[in-house]
Computed example of a mutant assay.
Amino acid sequence: MEMEYGSIEQELHIDAAPDVVYEVISSPEHLREWWPDDADLVPVPGATGAITFGDPTSPDATIVPLTVLEADPPRRFVFRWVYDESPATETNSLLVTFDLVPSGDGTLLRFRETGFRERGWEAAVLEEAYHEHVHGWDLFLPRLVTYAAKLGARP
C-alpha cells in the first residue's frame, strides 16, 4: 500500500481583493507579518532568496533558501524551498503554489505544497516532514487570512 504524503492542500476565503492577497504572499515586508521571522526575496521568476525562522542574528536561526518560479500578480505565486541544501532546485526542494481567485468581495486562496515523496526520504523521515509541514501551514495560513483581511479593510 502506497503512503499518501504527496501534497498538502488548503482552500481559504480571504476578505481582501486578490491584489492585496498577492502582496501578502509575495513581498518580504508582508511575509514577515504572518509567516517567517525574516524574508529576503524579490518576487520575480528565477529570483533566489531566503526566509528565516528565529532571530536572524542568532546562529540557531533556520535559514531556508527559496527560488521563485512564477510571479503572476494578482493570480499566482509559486516558489521552491529547501531546508538542507542550497539553492532550491526541482530535485531537492518542495514546491509551494498560491493560486488566487476573485470570490465576491474577496479572494479564494488555493494553497498547495508538493514534492515530499520526490525527495527520496525514507518512510519515517517522509512522514515526519509531511506532518511538520501540515502543522506549520495549519498555524501560518490562518495568520495569512487574518493579516490580509486587516490590510484589505483599510480605507
Rank of each mutant, 00 (worst) to 15 (best):
R112Q: 09
R119E: 02
E90R: 07
A88Q: 13
P142S: 06
A124M: 02
G136C: 11
E122F: 01
R110A: 03
N92H: 07
F79E: 02
S86L: 00
E118C: 03
L139F: 15
W137D: 12
V96F: 03
F140V: 12
S93Y: 01
E90N: 03
W81R: 04
F79A: 06
V125C: 00
T114H: 09
F79R: 05
F98C: 00
R143T: 14
F98W: 11
P87S: 12
G104Y: 03
V134E: 13
S86Q: 12
R143M: 14
P87I: 05
T91I: 03
N92T: 04
H131T: 13
E85S: 05
P102W: 10
F98D: 01
V134M: 14
T107H: 11
L100D: 02
L95W: 08
T97V: 15
D105I: 11
D138H: 11
A88N: 14
G120T: 07
G106S: 09
S103E: 15
W137G: 06
T89A: 07
V101H: 13
L94K: 12
G106R: 09
T89V: 08
R110Y: 00
E122H: 08
G136R: 08
Y83D: 07
T89R: 08
E90D: 10
G136T: 10
G120Q: 06
V96M: 09
H133Y: 13
L109C: 06
A129G: 14
G136Q: 11
R119C: 03
H133F: 12
R112I: 02
R143P: 15
E90L: 07
E113I: 13
R110T: 02
F79T: 05
H131F: 13
D105C: 10
A123L: 05
R80P: 00
L94N: 14
E113R: 09
E127K: 11
V101W: 11
V125P: 00
Y130V: 11
G136D: 12
R117Q: 09
D105T: 15
F79Q: 12
E85D: 10
V96C: 07
D105G: 15
W137K: 08
F116H: 02
L100G: 00
D99H: 05
A129S: 12
W121F: 05
V78N: 01
A129R: 13
P142Q: 08
L109Q: 06
F111C: 04
V134Q: 12
A88T: 13
R117V: 06
L95G: 02
H133N: 15
D105E: 15
D105S: 15
W121L: 08
Y83H: 14
G104C: 03
A129E: 10
